[in-house]
Simulated scan of single mutants.
Amino acid sequence: MALIRDGVRYVVRHRFIAPCVVVATLINFVAGAQMALTPVFLVRTLDTPAAVVGILMASGGLGSLIGAALTPKVSRLLGSARALIVASVVTAGATVLIPLAGHCRAARKIAAGGAVTCALKSSVRRLGAV
């Protein structure tokens, strides 16, 4: 128990690690809620067929792979700090596409937004580990 207390004390007092832990916790909380509510939104609000919902949710996996592949290049090009900022801003912008979808026809926006969002979240996580 003393080791856990020492570890928590170290993280809370650390100048760089503490804010990273707070941000990571908030991102994971919001991402979990988004992943749980997106299928409900698609089915109830947009009357999207189950097969399309599956395809849209799977597009997030593709986005994660793309983000993982692009992260080293983006971090070399922009630098880790700038890449984190750009990825965070673009992720927020892409996430806004989801509630803007008004019809099932607009599900392409959600697929694009979901794929971009997952790619950028993957990039943000990987850049944080760099």
Rank of each mutant, 00 (worst) to 15 (best):
A2N: 12
A2G: 00
I4A: 13
D6V: 03
D6P: 01
D6S: 14
V8Q: 03
V8H: 02
Y10A: 11
R13Y: 01
H14C: 06
F16M: 00
A18T: 00
P19L: 03
C20S: 09
C20W: 02
V21F: 12
V21A: 13
V21G: 06
V23S: 14
A24H: 07
A24P: 03
L26M: 13
I27M: 08
I27T: 04
N28Y: 08
N28H: 14
N28R: 11
F29I: 15
F29S: 10
V30Y: 07
A31V: 13
A31N: 15
A33F: 09
Q34T: 12
M35Y: 02
M35W: 08
M35D: 12
L37K: 02
T38Q: 14
P39E: 05
P39A: 03
P39S: 03
V40P: 03
V40F: 09
L42V: 00
V43I: 15
R44N: 15
D47L: 11
D47Y: 04
V53Y: 00
G54V: 00
L56Q: 05
L56T: 14
M57C: 04
M57L: 15
A58M: 12
A58W: 05
S59Y: 01
G60I: 04
G63C: 03
S64M: 13
I66T: 10
A68G: 15
A68R: 06
A69T: 06
L70Q: 04
T71R: 00
T71W: 02
P72C: 04
K73F: 12
K73L: 09
S75A: 15
R76T: 07
R76V: 02
L77K: 12
L78G: 04
G79K: 06
G79F: 02
S80I: 06
S80L: 04
A81Q: 13
R82W: 04
R82P: 03
R82Q: 13
R82N: 11
A83V: 06
I85L: 09
V86L: 10
V86D: 00
V86I: 10
S88A: 14
V89N: 00
V90K: 04
A92V: 13
G93W: 09
T95G: 08
T95Q: 15
V96H: 06
L97I: 08
I98K: 04
P99K: 08
L100F: 11
L100P: 01
A101K: 09
A101I: 07
G102S: 14
H103N: 11
H103Q: 15
H103M: 11
R105F: 08
R105G: 15
A106T: 11
A107Y: 03
A107M: 10
A107D: 09
A107V: 12
R108K: 04
K109D: 13
A111D: 02
A111R: 03
A112L: 15
G113Y: 10
G113D: 13
G114C: 08
G114Q: 13
V116K: 07
K121P: 01
K121T: 12
S122P: 01
S122I: 03
V124F: 11
V124N: 07
V124D: 03
R126D: 01
R126V: 14
L127G: 06
A129M: 15
